Simulated assay, not measured.
Amino acid sequence: MAGGGCSRGLCDQISDAILDACLMADPGSRVAVEVAIKGNLLCILGELTTHARIDADAIARQVLRDIGHADGRWGLDADRIRIILELSTQSPEIGARVDAEDIGAGDQGLMFGYACRETPTLMPLPITLSHALMARHWEYRQTPEGQLLGPDAKAQVTVR
């Protein structure tokens, strides 16, 4: 599930948590979900073809709580945010093509990075360092001194 010291964005963590919930209950799930947030509005949009019974609203609220948006202190309140769900099943045309070809995917996602031998994680050094910085940010936020930091942070590393 999404959470903690992850360097993924808030919306990515919510869509990943929805995917995880579907796959845990139904490994054959097909999930294409996007999340967008603006102010106090969170939209969950996409297609789910699954036998899993999930509560996307509750999943989104829990992810918000897990990363530190439990009480509105940092601008978002997991219990007060307005959530719009626009989820449907995958189009029959895409489903039929995927089944016929046995290729397991209906479209492409966005990928960041590439495999390489620069680091033990097999990811480029700037990505590895950014992830480490964000993990350290999460750890520091758990200390009394770190309570002054908000949950939303970004790290950018450039290597020359």
Score class of each variant (00 low, 15 high):
T128D: 14
A36Q: 07
G146Q: 04
A105P: 02
T121F: 04
A52W: 00
T143W: 12
P126K: 03
V31A: 10
T49W: 01
P27C: 08
M1W: 05
I81K: 06
E101T: 09
P92F: 14
R61F: 11
L76G: 06
D57Q: 06
V98I: 15
I67C: 10
A155Y: 00
T158H: 08
V157T: 06
R73C: 02
P151G: 14
G39R: 11
A58V: 09
I37A: 07
R117Y: 03
Q108E: 12
L129D: 10
A155L: 01
R82G: 13
A155K: 00
L85T: 10
I14C: 02
A58G: 05
S130D: 10
G72L: 13
A78P: 02
A56F: 01
G28S: 12
A36V: 07
R141W: 13
P27T: 07
Y140R: 14
D20K: 01
I103E: 12
F112L: 04
R82Y: 14
P124Q: 13
P27F: 12
A58T: 09
G95N: 15
R82T: 15
P151Q: 06
A78R: 04
G95Q: 14
G72H: 02
M1K: 03
P124Y: 04
L10A: 01
R82I: 08
L149R: 14
R80M: 14
L45D: 05
R97M: 12
S29Y: 01
L76H: 11
D77W: 15
V98H: 10
D107H: 11
M111Y: 09
G9R: 03
Q147M: 08
R8V: 02
L148H: 14
L19F: 06
G75E: 03
V98Y: 03
A58L: 08
L48A: 02
T158S: 12
V159E: 07
R53V: 13
G68S: 06
